[in-house]
Nucleic acid binder design. Sequence first.
DNA 1: TAGATTGTTAATCGATTAACAATC
DNA 2: TAGATTGTTAATCGATTAACAATC
Lengths: 209, 209
Amino acid sequence: MKILPDKTVERLSQYRRALLICRAENKTHIFSHELAGLIHITPVQVRRDIMLIGYTGTLRKGYDVHELISLIGRIIDTEEGLRVCVVGIGDLGRAIIRYFKGKRTKLVITAAFDANPEKVKCVYSGVPCYPIDQLETVIKEQGISIAILTVPGEVAATVGQTLEKAGIKGIINYTPTPLNVSENTYLGGYDMITSLEKAAYFVKSNREM
Amino acid sequence: MKILPDKTVERLSQYRRALLICRAENKTHIFSHELAGLIHITPVQVRRDIMLIGYTGTLRKGYDVHELISLIGRIIDTEEGLRVCVVGIGDLGRAIIRYFKGKRTKLVITAAFDANPEKVKCVYSGVPCYPIDQLETVIKEQGISIAILTVPGEVAATVGQTLEKAGIKGIINYTPTPLNVSENTYLGGYDMITSLEKAAYFVKSNREM
DNA sequence: TAGATTGTTAATCGATTAACAATC
DNA sequence: TAGATTGTTAATCGATTAACAATC
């Protein structure tokens, strides 16, 4: 399939989450305006996204919840699943591991890394922690393709380089340091200070109006 | 000043961070291509953003680091500063409080909230934790205008409502639940599962190419 | 049938990039 | 001067929204 727009992919993830809840409530069909309402966007946008992934609903009943869930799965997930690691076990790293625990079967955190030898002995929510100098070995051995970066900002750039060298294909960067990755490595994530400063700007502007 | 584009505000925050580092290194002037290089965007984009905020550099020396820092400050920050609270003291909430500690003088976390009575007695990195049913009182007393939401997904919608009622003007939502807020409340934040699934999609598509 | 809904094209809006005059 | 740089307009690209035909 042709590559989907960035924003559409984001919404597909949100659609699926909403649809999974619908399914748990034994809802079999859903209209575009219902799905739109659940995530607070417009029905047209839902229909256009669904058009882009080549699915069609029915005029009377809308979209089949099961079918849509499994189609989105075929688009986002791989059959064998992808493995993920968390680099840097501070509060944030731990939060992510715990939050993710058992959430998605096709996207599993299998390893954590930290420089602190104390932490290396531990297992966090079922995920073993390795010393950071074994990054390359463990990533290759386990076939990990995505890394979540939560190390201190000062070492982020260096670790980013190592991750690419180890064969990582996507990095979610939660550090404040901008990473320099090659063309075909996906780069995501948001820095919290920027998020907050953006909020501050809009709160300020709104107040002045 | 006319309202700035969303993306420009985001970049201003990043420019400032980069410029603060430059200042610490006693750099007094910077060219657009240098600043661009630091955050991996194009020089044109830097110049256009700077044009939008009405600053002008000099042909020979580029932009004055001090001046640019202070101008960005006047745009993003308010003179008296804004107060921020964190709602939900799990690993993530604690990570945010600690990470933020002392980072910005005009944007300070002054209160935390949690439903768990155990946590309510505690102080996290200098931030006192209040019971969640005192949300409205404390927010009004302290004049808090921004909330960072890290509660469990199931209660996010309800807490979101309460926050608006308490007079919060901006919410950074780190829960997976889409919030329904009124027109003039700023809404930001990203869900980690969506971020990761987006990465998964692009890693997958890339691999197939 | 009338009303509600989907699917899709065209129009609009917003953000980035190309191009280039002006200047030191 | 020649080369490097800024500031800015116009063109392009990408995403959202409006409009509407088709259908049950």
